[in-house]
């Protein structure tokens, strides 16, 4: 059935999958076998096969989050063989293909682990902490209408490009999952950098970083110790420079803002 490679041999795999009925019940790793997996399949399509098998056997399919399956929505979030989104660099789980594995492999699949990301069920976790951090200040306060013309404030291309690079974060949470400290600094820094770089974001520059960091801490994420796992595992390549920028923004804001609280 293979598309590009008619000679690709189907694989048999052993899966060690984290199963947990709900947030309040302890889970465990359960072993499954899947057969005839085409190397052309995506990792999630392989899980689809497992789930169809389970369903036919009358068992509860494995719950996992996914949607666009083209690496941009940030829904998929599996910790595969000890790595966020598995072994391939710069790739979300949905874009990871089975040709990266070999026949007979044992694959361990776990949910993101962080206190701030409680497990909903099986491999699905609750990442609403990220939303609350954005709600704390990850925006520019403009109402609809009444804004200046798009070309009124020129933005140097270099700045626009850097802001864009930071803005490509998909909020999947791979950074938190991979970080020894379960720190969310790469995620927070991407948004802080984007809006601090653009002139449109300058009005709220100080309050934004103060509030977002406060919320980040409140959610119970760890503190960054500059290990760099986050950037190495980030599927869209958000750079550590953003964390440095976050630190700088925070220090300057705390030192110079009028906020006494």
């Amino acid at each position: 059935m293979a598309g590009s490679n008619p000679n690709a041999k189907p694989m048999n795999l052993t899966l060690n999958v984290w199963r947990q009925p709900n947030r309040n019940t302890e889970g465990r790793i359960v072993e499954y076998k899947v057969k005839d997996i085409s190397p052309e399949m995506s990792f999630l399509e392989m899980l689809d096969v497992l789930n169809e098998d389970l369903l036919h056997a009358g068992e509860d399919p494995v719950a996992f989050d996914h949607d666009c399956r083209e690496g941009i929505c940030g829904s998929c979030d599996l910790f595969i063989n000890g790595r966020s989104h598995g072994p391939e660099k710069g790739t979300t789980t949905c874009q990871l293909h089975m040709r990266k594995f070999s026949d007979g492999d044992t694959i361990t699949i776990e949910p993101w682990r962080a206190n701030a990301f409680p497990v909903n069920k099986d491999l699905s976790v609750d990442r609403s902490a990220f939303d609350r951090i954005i709600q704390a200040g990850g925006y520019i306060s403009v109402n609809t209408g009444g804004v200046p013309d798009g070309n009124e404030i020129p933005v140097p291309k270099e700045i626009a490009d850097r802001a864009f690079e930071a803005a490509t974060c998909i909020a999947c949470g791979a950074c938190v999952a991979a970080c020894k400290n379960a720190s969310a600094m790469l995620f927070v820094s991407a948004k802080v950098s984007q809006l601090a770089l653009l002139p449109q974001g300058h009005a709220e520059r100080k309050t934004r970083v103060e509030n977002m960091v406060a919320q980040m801490d409140k959610e119970g994420f760890g503190a960054c110790t500059n290990i760099g796992s986050c950037a190495a595992e980030c599927p869209v390549g958000i750079s550590l420079e953003n964390i440095a920028m976050l630190n700088r923004e925070f220090i300057v804001a705390k030192a110079t803002s009028n906020n006494l609280a």
Binding site: Y139, V147, G150, P154, A163, F164, A167
Partner: peptide, 12 residues
């Protein structure tokens, strides 16, 4: 205009 004001990093 609206998107630029929101900080959408359009190509420049």
């Amino acid at each position: 205009d609206q998107c630029v004001a929101q900080g959408v990093p359009f190509a420049r």
